[in-house]
């Protein structure tokens, strides 16, 4: 299977590779620009237990990703459980009940700390005031970009962005709709709700 990720901005290459690996049979060959896309895809694939071989092709890099990956090894145990993504639903820009200021600080702290955690979610869904974390002015954009580079899909509710007049100001991940949110939650392997 071949995938052309040249010209894509981060984290799109990692997200594309992740999706392709979920369905790929055998080797996956990816064309990538040098720099962050190449490094991020290599790190992502190796982190998941795949083997990566590199070659230069027409000024771009071709990465051949082979192996079963760690996810496939764990599959037999999960056979009885749901096999969908590990989802984190973030329905607020505050963590916990209490003073707003403290809650906002804790949420920022939480998202940045996820970068140091071994098992990150496959998908983070931001709804209601949660979308303030993915839009311009958020203090966690840098952390969300880094999570994206590790294969985390960052998705924000379009209606919510619209409500807060942030539709044009989304700065991390992509816009999603209620169908994807509902489907993600009902098929998820695990859901963590904040």
């Amino acid at each position: 299977m071949d995938l052309d990720c040249r010209g894509m901005a981060c984290p799109a290459p990692v997200v594309s590779v992740k999706r392709a690996l979920e369905t790929a049979n055998g080797a996956l060959r990816v064309l990538l620009d040098d720099g962050a896309p190449r490094e991020n895809v290599r790190r992502f694939a190796e982190g998941r237990g795949y083997q990566v071989q590199e070659e230069v092709q027409d000024g771009a890099f071709a990465l051949t990703i082979t192996g079963a990956g760690a996810a496939a090894v764990a599959a037999p145990q999960a056979a009885v459980a749901k096999t969908g993504p590990a989802v984190m639903l973030i329905g607020t820009d505050r963590l916990g009940d209490g003073p707003e200021e403290l809650g906002r600080l804790l949420m920022r702290n939480f998202i940045i700390t996820l970068l140091d955690v071994a098992e990150v979610p496959d998908r983070m869904l931001f709804i209601n005031t949660g979308v303030l974390l993915t839009a311009e002015g958020s203090e966690v954009l840098e952390a969300l970009e880094k999570l994206g580079n590790r294969g985390v899909e960052v998705l924000s509710c379009g209606v919510c962005l619209d409500y807060f007049h942030k539709k044009e100001l989304l700065k991390a991940g992509a816009v999603t709709n209620m169908f994807t949110i509902a489907e993600s939650l009902t098929t998820a392997r695990t859901v963590v709700r904040l």
């Binding site: 600080l105 920022r108 702290n109 940045i112 700390t113 140091d116 203090e139 840098e142």
Partner: peptide, 15 residues
């Protein structure tokens, strides 16, 4: 940027 204190730097408040 306010960040969680890196683990190497044990801090009381964690920020």
């Amino acid at each position: 940027l306010l960040i969680p204190a890196p683990r190497a730097l044990a801090a009381d408040c964690g920020l």
